[in-house]
Design a protein around this nucleic acid. Structure first.
Lengths: 138, 138
DNA sequence: CGGTATCCAGCCCGATACTG
DNA sequence: CAGTATCGGGCTGGATACCG
């Protein structure tokens, strides 16, 4: 067996299925359209609801609330309510949330290194789609 | 400034926005519902269309084709057609695709370490939702 | 064998308006 | 201030049938 193109050789104790499920768990956490934005924002420090709303950009309040609730539900951010008048609500990363930022960095490192290849591949396929499938040239 | 909760201190040369965009590029590649499954499968070796179809599970042919085309378009898998009768089509990882598997491993490592915390948080929030908001107890 | 074509359901997200 | 309520649109993914 001279073929080393087998991912399982790196972790013979884990099945593909377990890896897929694990990866899926992670993706569920950050799959929301704005989850990553919120995570990066809170990684720069605690923010109030209105601060997140303003700093993220053109997110709607409904979607922002959904995003925050989902992240809170997954335990990566925490929500602190100050019962003043008017109320103040602060969001911040939990330790679990901080552990995710490391992964986000790793993902960024990958795109820093390979992102251009992805863009290039996409452009190539676009051009190929525009070219008539080789016939009218004769 | 004794506050070290600043993610940018790790990479002062990169803005949050660039990181968010980079992360988004990666997520676009693997965000498809079945992308990770296909990637892991092909990481175990080249597969024919029907093999992928069977081994992935309950994916529809349309969705499988969509997934494969998207991954091909992003340059992470390659499609090789053998013009026999009937035709044979083989899919395999490109070098770019192989570079992604490293990241998938990193993601798996994270869930192996923290996945249980996510599940626990979710369960806790479920229970909290079932509890009446503290009023009828008196 | 390896796909398309067509139709359709579900969900995520947004815009707007209203509230404790 | 920090949300909720309601309505609606777009895109993803599935079921089924057909094709080179």
């Amino acid at each position: 067996m001279d073929n080393v193109t087998d991912i399982s050789s790196a972790r013979p104790d884990v099945t593909d299925l377990q890896m897929i499920e694990g990866t899926r768990t992670f993706l569920e956490v950050i799959a929301g359209k704005w989850s990553v934005d919120v995570l990066y924002l809170l990684a720069n420090g605690t923010r109030r609801y209105s601060e997140v709303f303003y700093e993220v950009g053109e997110i709607s309040k409904k979607t922002l609330t959904q995003t925050l609730r989902a992240l809170e539900r997954d335990g990566v951010i925490s929500r602190q309510v100050y019962p003043e008048v008017p109320v103040k609500v602060e969001y911040s990363l939990t330790p679990l949330g901080w552990s995710i930022t490391g992964l986000l960095m790793a993902i960024y490192e990958w795109t820093a290194e390979h992102g251009a290849e992805v863009e290039a591949a996409r452009t190539l396929h676009e051009e190929a789609a525009e070219r008539p499938p080789l016939a009218a040239a004769a």
